[in-house]
């Protein structure tokens, strides 16, 4: 620690002379990550199934696995990640200030975030949509009947804006109860501080499953928004964006091609399918093009798993979160998960 303090103080002193150079746009994030020896990944401080430290302080979850996958691709070691838990209000500032190298924090890909906030979304790892949950005894069966309801809503999120849009389009009034986090929202809702809890349908399902009497609450049928959740990086470093994007694509392609963490080693000996060979680095130089070792995708798949495996392990139907694949099935199975070819 001492050394970094020395360096920090020195740098702060040197700052006066050099002027605020800030983030040198030319510097490569990938080089900085390799230099640092670990990936700095911004995650949610606690959303069941997506990101949370377990009893021994190890980060687990669907979004966390994406951080681990990128670390596996770069270092061949999924543990080389420094996690920074971020609230929804500070996540973009943390990314643009360089406090983290990437965000894997159930963040919705929108026009203004992509363009105006200078973030670069590198794919979608979960297609979500916003829904409503109400106590059964409210006696409401459609979101159109929620005129005048009090609504618990996380601040600084797209759900907040969608809610306003939806109520405006339908000519209804509502009273927002702003909350800071998923768990706080859940408590407010259970305590009766609001009639309606609205957030992404995946979180609603996970939340309802944890209630003492889940059957007293219903999720309304309306899904009022598109919420493509995905990882993002800073604008202006496309090479780094490529690393994150193609790590996710490798996980999707692996599922599509039937490569799993179990059979990848076997397949890496060489198969008759040239795309699998290219993916696993047996043929071609795809890794080198990214500035990574050629077995990068092989490492991702063996150390973290393919897309379907991480889904099942963290949020799938066998877990307490219990989400069905639905929209997040592969395109070949009626879903939206699709990766460009590895060629």
């Amino acid at each position: 620690m001492k050394k970094s303090v020395f360096m920090g103080t020195l740098a702060a002193a040197g700052l006066v002379a050099t002027g605020a150079m800030a983030q040198d746009a030319g510097s490569s994030t990938l080089a900085a990550v390799k230099d640092h020896g670990a990936l700095k990944c911004g995650v949610n401080p606690g959303t069941p199934g997506f990101a949370a430290p377990d009893a021994s302080g190890v980060w687990k979850g669907f979004d966390v696995d994406l951080c681990r996958a990128v670390a596996a691709a770069i270092f061949g070691d999924p543990e080389k990640v420094e996690y920074t838990p971020l609230t929804s209000a500070v996540r973009f500032t943390a990314l643009s200030s360089g406090e983290v190298d990437m965000l894997a924090r159930n963040t919705t890909w929108t026009f203004s975030r992509d363009v105006d906030l200078k973030a670069e979304f590198t794919g979608v790892n979960y297609y979500d949509g916003q829904g409503f949950m109400i106590p059964k005894d409210l006696g409401v069966s459609s979101a159109k009947e929620l005129e005048g309801a009090t609504v618990c809503i996380e601040t600084g999120t797209t759900t907040e804006l969608n809610l306003a849009d939806y109520f405006r389009t339908n000519g209804m009034d509502y009273e927002p109860v702003p909350v800071e986090s998923f768990t706080e929202a859940q408590n407010q809702f259970l305590a009766g501080a609001c009639d309606v809890y609205t957030t992404d349908a995946s979180a609603l399902a996970a939340s309802r499953a944890s209630f003492e009497n889940p059957s007293d609450y219903v999720v309304l049928p309306e899904i009022i928004s598109k919420e493509p959740l995905g990882p993002l990086v800073r604008h202006g470093d496309s090479e780094w964006g490529d690393v994150v994007r193609w790590t996710l694509n490798a996980m999707v392609s692996a599922e599509e091609l039937g490569v799993t963490s179990e059979n990848a080693t076997e397949m890496a000996a060489g198969t008759d399918n040239p795309e699998i060979n290219r993916l696993l680095g047996v043929e071609g130089e795809l890794g080198a093009m990214l500035g990574l070792p050629n077995e990068w995708a092989f490492n991702v798949i063996t150390m973290v798993g393919n897309y379907g495996e991480t889904f099942e392990a963290n949020i799938g139907e066998s877990t307490p979160v219990g989400l069905a694949r639905g929209l997040n099935a592969l395109w070949t199975e009626g879903g939206l998960i699709y990766s460009p070819p590895f060629r």
Binding site: M1, S4, V5, M7, G8, T9, A11, A12, L15, A20, M21, A22, Q23, D24, S27, A32, D35, H36, V90, T93, A94, S97, G98, E99
Partner: peptide, 22 residues
């Protein structure tokens, strides 16, 4: 605290890490 954790990084070269607790 926000200044310490987020904004300070804008003014420091990317390679410099200044311990967060400090």
């Amino acid at each position: 605290l926000f200044t310490a954790s987020l904004l300070l990084n804008y003014f420091l070269p990317p390679s410099v890490t200044f311990d967060l607790t400090v």
